[in-house]
């Protein structure tokens, strides 16, 4: 049965694009979760909706406007967090609703677009064209290479920004690079699971991986494995059950999270508290 599904070109394209997106979401997600930017994906995806509306309204290829508007939104979010006393989640709420509001206004002003906006909201991985696939693979490769090159710097920045600065890292520049990379990741990925479910791919594999109590590289490896496994099985299961792929992928990822939690509570997994409410402050 699996071979039958794999014989269809649209399934092959979906799986290849899905694996690429699964990798960049979980890799980028490791830093996003640890920096308490878990809802960043949601925020940027909503801004991307505004960007798509702008593109459709102006007659420009909507994904390009989505990239531009999302990067602007991401930088705005970063600036809002740094230079005001607005907390991280509130800043995400401001940017998220602003971006979405622009989208809603443009949709209503033009009397509704001909393109199915639902595919942007809920994902449309089975409808991916050759051009989409090439774009997803090219951008994903760029994101992966950048993350591999900058992973140590991002890890230090994530661990303690002030210490990173004292270590000679250009933290302001790195923060902007981080936000731009995260925005590109989100816009590239939301074709897979849709803007409403993008946070799931960013957050769930990572919080599951962190329960294994391993170091950075192994945690990233576990997260990538969970993410890619969820994407592959999600696409195949959705094909057989004839349901939406995006929702199936997310439910499988949630299933792995719940299973890991059960293993942890029964003592099979080493006990590591994943929901300690506050940060550890080491008074040396």
């Amino acid at each position: 049965m699996i071979l039958e599904a794999l014989s269809y070109t649209f399934m092959q394209k979906a799986l290849v694009a899905g694996i690429a997106v699964g990798i960049i979401c979980s890799f980028m997600g490791t830093f996003l979760v640890l920096r308490r930017y878990s809802l960043f994906g949601d925020g940027i995806a909503h801004v991307a909706f505004g960007g798509i509306s702008v593109g459709l309204f102006l007659g420009i290829f909507p994904l390009w406007t989505a990239f531009v508007v999302s990067i602007i939104g991401g930088l705005g979010l970063q600036k809002l967090r740094q230079s005001t006393k607005i907390s991280g989640d509130a800043a995400v709420a401001v940017v998220l609703s602003s971006g979405f509001a622009v989208g809603v206004i443009l949709v209503s002003a033009s009397g509704g677009f001909s393109v199915d906006l639902f595919s942007f909201l809920f994902g449309s991985i089975l409808l991916i064209s050759n051009e989409d696939l090439i774009m997803i693979l090219a951008i994903s490769s760029g994101v992966i290479i950048t993350l591999v090159v900058l992973q140590k710097q991002f890890l230090h920045l994530t661990f303690n920004e002030e210490q990173a600065k004292l270590g000679g890292l250009k933290t302001t520049l790195l923060n902007y690079a981080f936000v731009i990379l995260a925005s590109i990741t989100v816009v590239t990925s939301f074709r897979l699971v849709g803007m409403l479910l993008i946070s799931a791919l960013v957050v769930i594999p990572n919080i599951t991986a962190m329960m294994f109590g391993k170091g950075f590289k192994k945690t990233v490896g576990i997260s990538l494995t969970i993410s890619v496994f969820s994407v592959i099985t999600g696409i195949l299961v959705s094909y057989y059950l004839n349901v939406a792929a995006s929702g199936t992928i997310v439910i499988i990822a949630v299933g792995i999270l719940v299973g890991t939690l059960i293993l942890k509570s029964t003592g099979v997994l080493r006990k590591v508290d994943i929901k300690t409410p506050s940060k550890i402050t080491h008074n040396s």
Binding site: T30, L34, L155, F159, N160, E162, Q163, A209, M210, M211, K214, G215, F216, K218, T219, V272, D273, I274, T276, S278, K279, I280, T281, H282, N283, S284
Partner: peptide, 12 residues
């Protein structure tokens, strides 16, 4: 420093 703050489950 006197205080180093980090996430309790930081995977490092």
């Amino acid at each position: 420093p006197q205080k180093v703050t980090f996430e309790p489950n930081f995977p490092a």
